[in-house]
Computed example of a mutant assay.
Amino acid sequence: MQHFDILILPETNLILTASVIEPLRAANRITGRDLYRWTLFSPNGQAIETKAGIPIPVSGPFHPGRETDPLFVLSSYNWKNGATRELKMQLSQTARHRSMIAGIEAGSFILADTALLDGFSATTHWEDFEDFSAAYPQVNMLRDRFVIDRKRITTGGSLPTLDLMLELIRRAHGYSLALEVSRLFIYEQERTRGDLLQVPAIGNMRILDARVQAAIKLMEDTVEAPLSQARLARRAGVSARHLQDLFRDLMGVAPHEHYLALRLNAARRKVIETRSTFADIAAATGFNSASAFSRSYRAHYRESPSDTRRRLKQEA
């Protein structure tokens, strides 16, 4: 289990806070495990009043000791009002012990103002990029959605923060879980007019190539009877080798890895949400036998389908 401390400054957007927390909650729900927990703090222990008029409750004031858990510093508007001398001193002290500190959106300004980004690469919201670069020349600014540089993380807004959380989930628990979490946060219109598939990001990747989109759509439509890579590539209009290269460049995985992740995620939902036999689940997700399905399931999720059902039954 990974625990995060989350420091929220006044005037932080609801959506920014949700972009950090909701992917973690979704990962817990999908796996049926407490992979992640988090504690919310504010500088004074009072609930954060947002611009939307909906307060964000917190557990108490931020008074760090020698905690080593990752710390996320969230800020949206008027960050200078919250970045008091006392708070910056606390951040400087706790940074000595933390495994990681993240400046989320305007939180990057607070870290930079506390000299916690000196010598690091970072990013911030695109509207503030030039001002940030001028104010903190000691920080190597990159025009990326998020930047992970050793023990420092920065993001450029709410959706880039969601991308960051997917990347952290991928690094800790694999591509399959990150993909399944990402699919919870996407709305897909009916594609009756040939609309492009709206694929969520995994990490920094936004899928813009129509051939990769076509291949992913084919994968989603053929979970029950998977196509060979050669046939998949042919129907997407490229060679198998080129499709392999496109997936590696854009998705960070090979086509067969994405395909298998889709099938296993579909299978796990059936294991958790239905009483179907494992043989039926195997057939519905393109596996030749229940034993082949169980081997692949165990390799990905570190427990057998039977273990999953038994564990969830015990926890109910």
Results as ranks from 00 to 15, higher is better:
3 H>V: 02
4 F>K: 04
8 I>F: 09
8 I>L: 12
22 E>N: 14
23 P>Y: 05
24 L>W: 05
25 R>W: 01
27 A>K: 03
30 I>Y: 06
32 G>K: 05
32 G>C: 09
33 R>G: 04
40 L>C: 06
41 F>R: 04
45 G>Q: 10
46 Q>R: 13
47 A>Q: 09
51 K>Q: 14
53 G>P: 08
56 I>V: 12
56 I>G: 09
59 S>R: 10
64 P>L: 07
64 P>G: 11
70 P>T: 07
78 N>H: 14
79 W>Y: 13
88 K>Y: 02
91 L>S: 05
94 T>E: 09
97 H>N: 14
97 H>D: 14
97 H>F: 15
103 G>W: 02
104 I>N: 02
106 A>E: 09
112 A>H: 06
114 T>V: 02
114 T>M: 03
115 A>T: 10
121 S>C: 14
125 H>D: 11
126 W>P: 05
127 E>C: 00
129 F>A: 13
129 F>G: 01
131 D>P: 00
133 S>L: 10
133 S>P: 02
134 A>N: 15
139 V>N: 05
139 V>E: 02
141 M>L: 15
142 L>G: 02
142 L>N: 08
145 R>M: 08
147 V>Q: 04
152 R>S: 06
157 G>A: 09
159 L>Y: 12
159 L>M: 11
165 M>N: 02
165 M>D: 01
165 M>V: 08
170 R>E: 03
188 E>W: 01
189 Q>Y: 12
189 Q>F: 10
192 T>P: 01
199 V>T: 11
202 I>Y: 03
207 I>P: 06
209 D>Q: 14
217 K>A: 15
218 L>G: 07
224 E>L: 12
225 A>S: 15
225 A>I: 14
226 P>S: 10
227 L>I: 00
228 S>W: 07
229 Q>V: 11
230 A>H: 10
234 R>M: 11
235 R>A: 00
236 A>E: 03
237 G>W: 08
238 V>W: 06
242 H>I: 10
243 L>S: 06
243 L>H: 07
245 D>E: 15
246 L>Y: 07
247 F>H: 03
249 D>F: 07
250 L>Y: 08
252 G>A: 11
256 H>F: 10
256 H>E: 13
259 Y>F: 07
266 A>K: 08
266 A>L: 03
268 R>Q: 12
275 R>A: 12
278 F>E: 05
280 D>W: 00
280 D>C: 00
281 I>V: 12
281 I>H: 02
282 A>L: 08
283 A>G: 09
283 A>C: 04
285 T>Y: 04
290 A>I: 03
292 A>L: 11
294 S>C: 06
294 S>Q: 12
296 S>T: 14
297 Y>D: 04
298 R>N: 11
303 E>Q: 15
305 P>L: 07
305 P>M: 09
306 S>G: 12
310 R>S: 14
311 R>G: 08
312 L>T: 11
